[in-house]
Design a protein around this nucleic acid. Structure first.
Length: 581
RNA sequence: CGGGGCGUAGCUCAGCUUGGUAGAGCGCUACGUUCGGGACGUAGAGGUCGCUGGUUCAAAUCCAGUCGCCCCGACCA
């Protein structure tokens, strides 16, 4: 490719909208342009990177025995209604109507569609197991798209679906995908870890996420240095050894707390550690109101709460609702005297960190009043005790008691054991050897293609720009004649370009009439691993000047070694000493 | 959905408070001089000041509405 013909509008300055490294560098490097919030055009350079990721994914999926299909992007509502997710998905699902007012959606994922295909086409245990995958455009109307390709509304996803005759088979299919994902992300040059995850509205019994470690990641990973346990903090379990000490009366007493409605205000006003407060959160689901009690210094894990309640929607009650339900204003709710009544608060859930017979501070359900010396289990009921808090760094591992640590991660892949959630409801059955009809055991497996590329940039860049892992780089090497007006340099550049291209390498020839400095800046920004500088220095001594993106100094090699040098770049990447952050 | 910010040339932004013929740097075009880490000179092109309405003799500027984009939050009891 000749740079002079290549659409790669690099930007000298940082675009104002970009915060994270990958977003900023993909815009500056001329890889993407935004069309609408969370919707992007991939420019030639960016597309090349995406294609590299896709190629790796395709190779590893076939190697793992999956076969490629291509399902539609626009999906009829009926299938979604059949699975029940038409109502569950909410506003994230982009709903559209055709000219006959028939309902469709733009596919956010394809369980329903593949299950529909399989129930029509696969009838016997002899046809199983099977695994189908596709690389397709999805649309999810995200609450808040951000960070360029990291959280888009429209994005490219590889999704795979396995169908097995029994649990052992399903487990084997899952393990196979686990291995394939390991190979894929390793080949993409990423440092990642696999964590236990919540399966969200996809459903199923077990799921794990592949997390690329990066400070800009939107997910928190909880990791145990003792036993190696690691999980998304949404899913992680942890314990604390003991609750904080506090001076507290033995009997329940009222205390005036004028205007102190937050945990930190009340705690400092009453001189009690936040862990000795109980916050009482009033939630509402599709069917009822409920109270959730947890230590003041803790946060509710709404994912756990939602699954404990088996609720489809979950949200906090409004200030007005709280006043009506508890008799007191927001900020002063408490469990003492809280009545359980049909149509009002129907359940009181107590987090497992609240200890029976210990005394706490709670709201009095009365403006500007809190209660101190409230004994858990005596002054209020602890009938429903559940694990509802969000685990955090510093808690102890439930398995080995080591102190848990936390990292930030970008979720690039997610694998699920679905069981029969979809096959049962949609009747995707097969005949077993006895002739009985059974639902297939399913698994599903996703990879965010664009997000993987973005994550690679998050992990591999420096002040000058991207440093693509060679496996994802848009070009293997760039040839830069420092002066194209100099006929000798121009001719030599053309010669090397032809030589390398003829060897099957992806080469970019920077034949633009730019200054050498401008070309170097652009090439560094674009992150191409190999750089061949064609200048008088090398020409004079009959050598070729070469440098890898992550190296500081050029070296001069014999022209006969050039092709081998370019081919050696991937190995050099793997063994490079100065890994970049 | 709540809070905040922004919308002026391809990009980054100034001008708006105090209304009076639209600005800078970078980029782009032409010519010349340069030429190993974003060169210089000269001459040029390029803008319905997001959109709609209002106030006014006069609106980028004041007012109202609207659309779009970004950020923070959505864990607050």
């Amino acid at each position: 490719m000749r740079f002079s013909k290549f659409l790669c509008p690099t930007l000298r300055e940082d675009p104002s909208e970009a915060e994270t490294a990958s977003h900023r560098l993909m815009l500056r490097g001329g890889m993407i342009r935004q069309v609408a919030s969370g919707i992007y055009t991939l420019l030639p350079l960016g597309l090349r990177v995406i294609r590299k990721v896709e190629t790796i994914v395709r190779e590893e999926m076939s190697r793992a025995g999956a076969q490629e299909v291509f399902m539609p992007a626009v999906l009829p509502a009926e299938l979604w209604k059949e699975s029940g997710r038409w109502d569950v998905m909410g506003k994230e699902l982009l709903r559209i109507k055709d000219r006959n007012e028939r309902e469709f959606c733009f596919g956010p994922t394809h369980e329903e569609i593949i299950t529909d295909l399989v129930r029509r086409e696969i009838r016997s245990y002899r046809d199983l197991p099977r695994n189908f995958f596709q690389i397709q455009t999805k649309f999810r109307d995200e609450v808040r798209p951000r960070f360029g390709l990291m959280r888009c509304r429209e994005f490219t996803m590889k999704d795979a679906y396995s169908f097995d005759i029994n649990e052992e088979g399903a487990k084997a299919s899952y393990d196979q995908m686990y291995e394939a994902y390991h190979r894929i992300f390793s080949r993409c040059g990423l440092r990642f870890s696999v964590v236990d995850a919540d399966s969200g509205n996809i459903g199923g019994s077990q799921s794990q996420e592949f997390m690329v470690l990066a400070d800009s990641g939107e997910d928190e990973i909880i990791r145990c240095p003792g036993c190696g346990y690691s999980a998304n903090s949404e899913k992680a379990d942890g314990v604390i050894s003991k609750i904080p000490e506090a001076k507290m009366p033995n009997q329940m007493e009222k205390r005036e707390t004028p205007g102190k409605s937050t945990v930190s205000d009340v705690a400092s006003f009453l001189e009690v550690p936040e862990g000795r407060l109980i916050k009482t959160l009033i939630y509402k689901t599709d069917t009822m109101y409920l109270a959730v009690l947890l230590p003041g210094d803790r946060e509710v894990n709404e994912i756990k709460l939602k699954s404990a309640l088996q609720a489809q929607h979950l949200g906090l009650a409004s200030a007005q609702e709280i006043q009506e339900l508890t008799g007191g204003p927001l900020g002063f709710s408490g469990p003492v005297g809280l009545k359980i009544e049909k149509g009002k608060i129907e359940r009181i859930l107590v987090d497992g960190l609240i200890e029976k017979d210990e005394s706490y501070v709670v709201g009095a359900n009365e403006k500007d009043v809190h209660l101190v010396g409230v004994v858990a289990g005596k002054d209020f009921s602890m009938q429903e005790v559940l694990d509802l808090h969000r685990t955090r760094e510093g808690d102890q591992c439930v398995k080995c008691q080591a102190v848990l640590q936390s990292d930030r991660g970008i979720e690039v892949g997610h694998i699920f054991r679905l069981g029969t959630k979809y096959s049962e409801i949609m009747q995707a059955t097969f005949s077993d050897p006895k002739g009985e009809l059974k639902p297939s055991i399913m698994g599903c497996y996703g990879i965010g293609i664009g997000r993987t590329a973005a994550a690679a940039i998050e992990q591999n860049h420096d002040a000058r720009g991207v440093i693509f892992p060679p496996s994802l780089a848009p070009f293997d090497v760039a040839v830069i004649p420092v002066q194209v007006t100099n006929e000798d340099l121009k001719r030599e550049g053309e010669r090397l370009y032809a030589l390398l291209a003829d060897s099957g390498l992806d080469v970019l020839l920077d034949d633009r009439e730019e200054s050498a400095g401008a070309k170097f800046k652009d090439l560094d920004l674009m992150g191409i691993p190999g750089k061949i500088t064609v200048g008088k220095k090398g020409l004079a001594q009959g050598k070729v000047e070469v440098k890898m993106r992550w190296q500081e100094e050029s070296q001069f090699i014999d022209p006969s070694e050039l092709v081998d040098w370019v081919r050696s770049i991937p190995q050099a990447w793997d063994t490079r000493s100065s890994k970049v952050a």
